[in-house]
Amino acid sequence: MTHPSLDALRDLAPGYLLQALTDVERAQFERALRDPALAPELEAELAAHRETFAMLAEGQATPAPPELRERVLARIESEAASQRAAPPAATPVSKVAPAPQTGPRIRWVPALLATALAASAVFAVDLRRQVQQLETQLGMQALALDSTRQRLAQRDSTLQTLTDGGNDLVLVRLAPNTQAGPALQVYWNPRSGKAVIHASGLAPIAEDRAYCLWMIRDGKPVPLTLFRPGSDGSQLLHDVTVATGTSGVAAFAVTEEAATGSPVPTMTPFLVGEVKTE
């Protein structure tokens, strides 16, 4: 049986540890883990994520309530006692043990009061729970709203770059000689110096590598931005700083570089597009 690509399996690794996968995804990942050809790589990936999760947990460290310590140690003592097969610990005396019977006529009043108090306590707990529910829902909605706002802001920025360029807007198409394969378009607004970049058909890339877009100006390559393709091989970059004015800019090109970038290209560009201005 074939496995998903190594990159796809790597993308599943955090979710596998976080119990965030579907049953199908988990089964796929576990099958790959049993494959000797993939196991070492995936195990290393899992081990690294475990330590990162440990650091995330440390980021939330909060002193525990002092009384909790005693309860934890008592629980462990109780488990240890069970393990030693000692006689079971004495049942703790209930703090709400029933009062001695003093006759039905004087017992029912406190009983009613207790019931009323219990009912109001339940009501208070329920009310608090409802408030927490509402806060939760508000929190989730605020998060979704925040995400939507960000996307709208990005789209505004994209539209502004495209429309503010007016007749000066420069479109540069970067593609190989063949029809298939990767392609990239630069929508460059030389007035603002900004560009919107759209890439497609890009091959997956190792985690320590990235694609780099270069501008060839005055015969020299200038690195503009590093990017990685999404899972479908495409990427849209909204607000890339290029240059104000087209003077001296002859072409754009794409290479694969280290994820930290490089001052000069380390390979022959696999995508090149000439800048044709009037």
């Binding site: 993308d11 599943l12 955090p14 976080l18 965030a20 579907t22 998060l143 995400s147 899972s231 479908d232």
Partner: peptide, 29 residues
């Protein structure tokens, strides 16, 4: 959302209104 809130990848994708594949890659990166 995935680590602290315990959401599945699908739930994270739905909450952030992003494709599932994007979310998986995003978490890993």
């Amino acid at each position: 959302l995935a680590f602290y809130q315990g959401l599945t990848h699908h739930e994270v994708a739905a909450t952030l209104q992003e494709p599932l594949g994007t979310i998986k890659t995003r978490i890993r990166l």
